[in-house]
């Protein structure tokens, strides 16, 4: 086919334009989070003292500070990375916020708690559940985000997939935090982090395979 002929065909298809990619990403993240939320309430549910902790425990509230400090930058980055002309550059530093907050909280916890209890705080009650549940609850949001990114045109498929994985893990961790009895920042650093890293890696691998266009 000659290029001018191709242009005729493309022009004839002018009306087929899809929804703007930012909307597709927003809808996908919303649907993915909703599916995981439903699975969460069906399988685990809130912990018994959820309402009480929500108003009285700083450690409990910090879990949400941590997950949102990851989820919000990851969402904004994924939305950008779905476009070919987006240059993440310095914006990737937004992702340093969560580790910085976590390190500060660990420091405060180590000041507040005697050193002979550090180990017990870190091991917690529920570490195995945490390790399993965060990745499991991540899969619906990850699938949705990857679907949306496929509609887009990411210049860097692996990076887009990685941030998508991180976003899905932070959504999953927000849900899981409402069930998990362990609130110490030492526990978060030891176990939640594994879920974040794992899902970021899975996202990067999946992205580099399926997000080429």
């Amino acid at each position: 086919m000659k290029t001018d002929d191709l242009i005729n065909a493309l022009a004839a298809d002018a009306k087929s334009v899809e929804r703007p990619i930012a909307q597709t990403v927003a809808i996908a993240v919303g649907v993915g989070a909703l599916v995981s939320t439903l699975i969460f309430f069906w399988s685990l549910g809130l912990r018994a003292n959820f309402a009480e902790s929500a108003v009285s425990s700083l450690r409990f509230l910090f879990k949400y500070v941590l997950t949102f400090s990851l989820a919000i930058p990851a969402y904004v980055l994924v939305r950008g990375l779905s476009r070919p002309d987006f240059q993440p550059g310095n914006k990737l530093w937004w992702l340093a916020l969560a580790p910085a907050l976590l390190l500060s909280a660990m420091g405060l916890e180590m000041l507040a708690v005697p050193s002979d209890q550090w180990h017990a705080k870190m091991v917690g009650y529920n570490s195995l559940t945490c390790l399993v549940v965060i990745p499991l609850l991540s899969f619906a949001p990850l699938a949705a985000v990857l679907y949306a990114l496929r509609q887009g045109a990411p210049a860097n498929p692996a990076l887009a997939g990685a941030i998508g994985g991180l976003l899905s893990a932070s959504i999953a961790a927000t849900l899981y935090a409402s069930h998990c009895r362990d609130d110490s920042p030492l526990f978060l650093a030891a176990w939640y982090t594994i879920g974040f890293v794992l899902m970021t890696g899975i996202g990067a691998l999946a992205g580099s395979r399926i997000l080429r266009w």
Binding site: L10, E18, R19, P20, I21, R83, A153
Partner: peptide, 13 residues
């Protein structure tokens, strides 16, 4: 490139 421009034009802001 022309095909990509066409099929991905919803990614232009």
């Amino acid at each position: 490139v022309l095909l990509a421009i066409h099929l991905k034009r919803h990614t232009w802001d």
